[in-house]
């Protein structure tokens, strides 16, 4: 009797143990985002780049490109807004980070919320995730990057970082903007964030330790770099270079393409068809060129480089556009 009961008790305990082991095998563990090697990803051969006639454009309002399984790059259709702004969705365990919300507010014209909701739902299904929290954040505070912000305000399980400098600083935890580097944990996916003012005074750059992508927003991209504060921008470029010295960088990614494939030649402002646009991603050599520029330029004006143009403290009324 004693032995029987003892055996029964031990069998129950063993049974629970076996069940737990089986569950841990069946249940997928956390998604892992190791920092030791750059997680690979792909850019499209060519982005959707508008059309000759914006009226006849049949492309989707938002192009969704899967860079890799947990990294998505979105682009607003240039026929809807010539800015053709890029937006990003980074996924970690239980959380997604949306950087920027494009240049068009109208959900009818630019259903960003719908696109992001669908993207999250598909991702959850693919990776056995649920109740993903969304963080709606911005690279900087210019209207062409938060026009559709309002589409997310009533979204459940969502953090709206906010559209003021103070709210941005508070959310990321800056106490010494822009100089400090902050670590940000997106559900196990580590980012390093630093301040990069110059184009706009609240801008941030994000480095993703998993993909080694360095996101430089509007302060460094293939186009007209409009600088409202030269000294701040020069310091920010050097800050990015220092970041690239300390962390391996696969590509620099950003917000717009305004250059043509011809060095030093840009598309005019307002262009809605860019058949000859270069890739969006940039290289460290281009960043080095910008570093060199910071050592040479000492007055307001327009300066041309093969991959970007520096509009140093030049008002928009004065451009080289025809």
């Amino acid at each position: 009797m004693l032995i029987k009961r003892g055996l029964a008790i031990v069998m129950v305990a063993t049974g629970i143990f076996a069940m737990e082991v089986a569950m841990s095998v069946i249940m997928k563990g956390d998604l892992l985002f190791p920092s030791n090697a750059a997680a690979p990803g792909q850019f499209p051969e060519q982005w959707i780049h508008g059309s000759k006639s914006a009226m006849d454009n049949t492309d989707p309002a938002v192009q969704v490109h899967r860079y890799n399984e947990h990294t998505y790059i979105l682009r607003e259709n240039k026929a809807i807004n010539y800015e053709g702004a890029f937006m990003y969705v980074f996924f970690g365990n239980g959380v997604a980070l949306l950087i920027d919300q494009g240049s068009t507010s109208s959900p009818a014209l630019f259903p960003l919320r719908e696109v992001v909701d669908e993207l999250i739902a598909n991702w959850e299904e693919e990776f056995d995730q649920s109740s993903t929290h969304l963080i709606v954040a911005n690279s900087h505070l210019h209207g062409d990057h938060y026009a559709a912000w309002n589409q997310f305000v009533d979204r459940e399980n969502t953090t709206m970082v906010g559209l003021t400098h103070e709210e941005m600083m508070h959310y990321w935890g800056f106490s010494n903007y822009p100089d400090e580097r902050l670590e940000f944990d997106l559900g196990g996916r580590k980012f390093v964030i630093t301040g990069t003012p110059g184009h706009q005074s609240s801008e941030i750059a994000l480095y993703d330790e998993w993909t080694d992508l360095l996101y430089t927003g509007d302060m460094f991209y293939r186009g007209r770099l409009y600088l409202e504060d030269w000294d701040a921008w020069a310091a920010s470029i050097k800050r990015l270079r220092a970041m690239a010295d300390d962390y391996p960088v696969s590509y620099l990614i950003n917000n717009h393409i305004e250059m043509t494939k011809t060095p030093m030649v840009d598309y005019p402002i307002g262009t809605t068809w860019q058949p000859n646009e270069p890739p969006m991603q940039m290289s460290l050599e281009m960043l080095d060129e910008a570093v060199k520029a910071t050592e040479v330029i000492n007055q307001a004006g327009i300066y041309k480089y093969p991959d970007f143009l520096i509009y140093n403290e030049v008002p928009w009324a004065y451009t080289t556009d025809p």
Partner: peptide, 14 residues
């Protein structure tokens, strides 16, 4: 104003 920084650079004259 002519050479002041473009405060609303990336525009939307919002």
């Amino acid at each position: 104003l002519a050479w002041l920084p473009a405060a609303h650079a990336h525009m939307l004259n919002m």
